Amino acid sequence: MTQRVAVIDPGSGNLASVLRAFEKAAEDNEIDVQVKVVTSAADLRMADRIVLPGQGAFAACRRGLDALPGVVDALEDRVRGHGVPFLGICVGMQLMATRGLEHGETPGLGWIPGTVAPMDPKGPDGLPLPLPQMGWNELSFEEGFHPVLDLVRPGDQVYFVHSFAFEAEDPEDVIATTDYGGPVAAIIARGNLAGLQFHVEKSGPIGLRMLANFLRWEP
């Protein structure tokens, strides 16, 4: 049976690249999916998997999501109420937090307790590292801990662009980190929820592997 994957358009995010990456991952792994960019609650209620990309500022992405009639309620119903697998990408991951502190305090969806706070990275010499953290960086994680990381190896690199980081209240919700002046949450997960701080759609074969893993994931 064809999986219906809904990619929400909150008014920001590289939607065309996300769409192409999912289609490529599905084709390469012979997974039967229909991937669709959506802005309506009705489409979400029909989805078998839900993806929320986002880039830019936390507050702007939250406003964009709130501007879609009924979408936040539909997300709560499908993701929290019915356990539909959910993937947040970049700011879409950050919106899973309790709150974000970019341009003032903005409430998140509150699905994984934590705060999205400004980064303050320092190098070995104690001097500030450039922000945003931009470019390829390694992942650190325990192999076999989560299906989204199947066939991915510690030390594999993915592509980051961000100046704010997810600070989880429960360290167990952080399943992979990267190092940028200290550990930074790279992947968070709880139940049927997963979030990737990096741009998985720009992360080459490793990113495609994770997207295929998400399409196969049965939480």
Results as ranks from 00 to 15, higher is better:
Arg216Phe: 08
Val84Cys: 13
Ile188Phe: 05
Asp48Val: 14
Met210Phe: 05
Asp77Asn: 07
Phe141Ser: 00
Leu139Gln: 04
Lys122Ile: 11
Asp43Val: 11
Leu131Phe: 06
Phe198Ser: 10
Phe22Asn: 12
Arg62Gln: 04
Arg216Tyr: 10
Gly104Trp: 03
Ser12Ile: 12
Ala26Cys: 12
Val158His: 05
Ala60Phe: 01
Gly195Cys: 06
Val38Lys: 14
Val38His: 14
Asp125Lys: 09
Asp179Trp: 03
Asn137Lys: 01
Ala185Trp: 00
Gln3Ala: 13
Leu193Ile: 10
Gly195Thr: 10
Pro107Ser: 08
Thr2Pro: 14
Gly64Lys: 07
Met46Asn: 15
Met46Tyr: 13
Pro53Phe: 13
Glu76Ile: 12
Arg78Glu: 15
Arg20Phe: 01
Cys61Ser: 15
Leu196Ala: 14
Lys36Asp: 14
Phe214Ile: 09
Leu127Tyr: 08
Gly123Thr: 13
Gly81Arg: 05
Gly195Leu: 07
Ser163Pro: 12
Gly182Val: 04
Arg99Met: 09
Glu172Ala: 13
Pro205Arg: 11
Val200Trp: 04
Ile112Arg: 00
Asp170Cys: 03
Ser203Glu: 00
Pro85Cys: 05
Arg99Gln: 14
Glu201Thr: 02
Pro85Arg: 07
Pro130Arg: 05
Met96Cys: 11
Gly181Met: 08
Pro10Ile: 14
Pro128Leu: 13
Leu208Gln: 15
Pro121Phe: 04
Trp136Gly: 03
Asp173Asn: 11
Glu105Pro: 04
Arg45Trp: 10
Pro10Asp: 08
Pro85Met: 06
Pro171Trp: 01
Val72Cys: 09
Glu27His: 15
Gly123Pro: 12
Thr2Gly: 10
Leu95Ala: 12
Ile187Arg: 01
Val174Ala: 02
Pro183His: 00
Phe22Met: 15
Ile8Arg: 05
Asp48Arg: 14
Tyr180Val: 10
Glu105Lys: 05
Lys36Val: 14
